[in-house]
């Protein structure tokens, strides 16, 4: 068995709002004020094999984008570690750290906010490879042309600014920018959510083609199971900062294990259930500032029992290649 290309070990990310002067004073006087801490990501373990496409799914606010940003090296984890090819990213320095950082690139959700509006396309794509010495100034123009062709962009448009392109083309520019530093791992954060449905399919196909051509590994973050179904080998489901289930794509649709996964799948629109009346998962997603004790899902879970509100379920193997965090499996 090969070693994972990227591993997330017990990683957490907390955002806390520190108390201002007035609040500190109030606390000293005896008021019940404490720092508000959001556990965006709470002890996540994840291993991704080379060449694998992992879909990361969850409701908005479940911490999937934060996890993606930690994997891409944009934010450091508060606890735990991100391990790229067996080496902890945090422990690296200098050239080694830079190399590892370039190996993992990110594709962003909003194709309008993710491109610098004051730069031409050739600068957007060519800046980083030139900066890191991947290409010389003389080769840059051909290099940019080649990457633009690979991502389905017309190289004659490279002198234009981002506002002169459509949403799908802008997303392709974002992909080209990431590919320009020759990464081996792409984190796609809702990379197609902001696009028209017809363009979504094209961009997904581009991802599939690029994976074959360039031997890429993907962490594909989405809130939409049907998109993930198309592209992924394996799906990881997150709820309120924790991974609740991880399974190969076929298993998750045929035999979901975790009650949250079941609830998610029930609500996905399908052709064979056209006449159904859809009911959203009952209750609201709880506030991550004050998450419920025990299993985070228990207030909304139809099968919840006493143990669920007391003890945090561990993510364990329930079948080969399948992990789930639910007390019902015991």
């Amino acid at each position: 068995m090969t070693a994972p290309i990227l591993e997330v070990r017990n990683a957490s990310k907390r955002f806390s709002k520190s108390l201002d002067f007035a609040a500190k004073l109030a606390r000293r006087m005896g008021a019940n004020v404490s720092e508000e801490t959001v556990h965006a990501v709470d002890g996540v373990d994840l291993a991704i094999m080379p060449g694998e496409v992992v879909g990361l799914v969850g409701e908005s606010g479940c911490g999937k984008s934060t996890l993606g940003r930690m994997v891409a090296g944009i934010m450091p984890p508060s606890d735990g570690s991100i391990i790229f090819e067996g080496v902890d990213i945090a422990g690296m320095d200098g050239a080694e750290a830079r190399k590892a950082a370039l190996e993992v690139q990110m594709i962003f959700q909003d194709p309008f906010a993710s491109l610098n509006p004051r730069m031409r396309v050739e600068q957007i794509i060519g800046e980083a490879p030139l900066f890191h010495g991947i290409v010389s100034r003389a080769e840059l123009s051909d290099y940019v042309d080649d990457i633009m062709r690979r991502t389905g962009l017309d190289p004659t448009l490279k002198r234009r600014y981002p506002h002169q392109f459509s949403g799908g083309q802008r997303q392709r520019i974002g992909i080209a920018r990431a590919l320009a530093v020759k990464p081996r791992f792409l984190v796609c954060d809702e990379a197609i959510a902001a696009l028209d449905v017809s363009i979504q399919a094209q961009v997904i196909n581009l991802f599939v083609d690029l994976r074959e051509e360039l031997d890429l590994t993907y962490l594909f973050i989405s809130h939409d199971l049907s998109v993930v179904e198309h592209i992924s080998d394996r799906v990881v489901i997150m709820y309120l900062g924790r991974v609740v289930e991880s399974a190969p794509i076929a298993d998750i649709f045929d035999a979901p294990n975790h009650p949250y996964t079941v609830a998610l799948l029930n609500e996905a629109p399908r052709l064979d259930q056209r006449r159904r009346v859809f009911e959203p998962v009952k209750g609201e997603i709880p506030s991550p500032i004050d998450p419920p004790p025990g299993c985070h899902f228990h207030p909304r879970c139809p099968h919840a029992h006493a143990r669920c509100s007391a003890e945090r379920p561990v993510l364990r193997e329930i079948a080969p290649g399948r992990l789930s965090a639910c007390h019902l499996n015991d």
Binding site: F108, Q109, D110, A113, S114, N116, A128, F131
Partner: peptide
């Protein structure tokens, strides 16, 4: 806070470059 700055960080550009070439012109 915009995503293109995150992208620049992810691309490993130096702080000086991010400030002068990405933030300042905007």
């Amino acid at each position: 806070r915009k995503e293109y700055i995150e992208a620049a960080t992810c691309l490993g550009l130096s702080h000086g470059r991010i400030v002068m070439r990405h933030i300042m012109p905007n």
